[in-house]
């Protein structure tokens, strides 16, 4: 499971970095989105991978070994919200730039 997750994060990051370095704004925003997925998975994995373990205490069972670390899940939630908002904002700026310059090149000219 660790290997699969590590490969997934690696592939997402690599594709994201490649796309960010491309000259079209659409490629850049997709690249940023892919990197944000990779980062979110990475934060999640930093709480160690556990199967069948909830992050919140249930049924009065207070044994900490029965639960997974809740902090990274809280962090990832915050990161998702912020990343999503920023991507939306970037999308608007991207469209404005397309309208102003008439091209989708990141420098505003081909």
């Amino acid at each position: 499971m660790e290997l699969v997750l590590a490969i997934a994060i690696g592939v997402l990051t690599a594709s994201g970095v490649y796309l960010i370095l491309r000259p079209r704004t659409f490629q850049v925003i997709i690249g940023l989105s892919l990197i944000s997925y990779a980062v979110n998975l990475f934060i999640f994995s930093m709480g160690r991978l556990r199967i069948d373990a909830a992050p919140v205490i249930t049924h009065g069972n207070t044994d900490p070994s029965a639960y997974t670390d809740p902090v990274p899940q809280a962090l990832v939630l915050t990161a998702i919200v912020i990343g999503f908002a920023m991507t939306a904002l970037f999308l608007v700026v991207m469209l404005a730039a397309r309208g102003f310059t008439g091209t989708d090149h990141v420098d505003g000219r081909d």
Binding site: T25, F42, L75, T87, F90, V93, M94
Partner: peptide
């Protein structure tokens, strides 16, 4: 301004992702 903001936002978004990765690593 829109052209400059496009670059500024992209750079700062990447920097924010680096920040998140580092915070996660340090917590881990």
């Amino acid at each position: 301004r829109v052209k400059a903001a496009l670059h500024y936002i992209a750079v700062n978004l990447v920097a924010s992702f680096l920040f998140l990765i580092s915070a996660a690593l340090i917590y881990g």
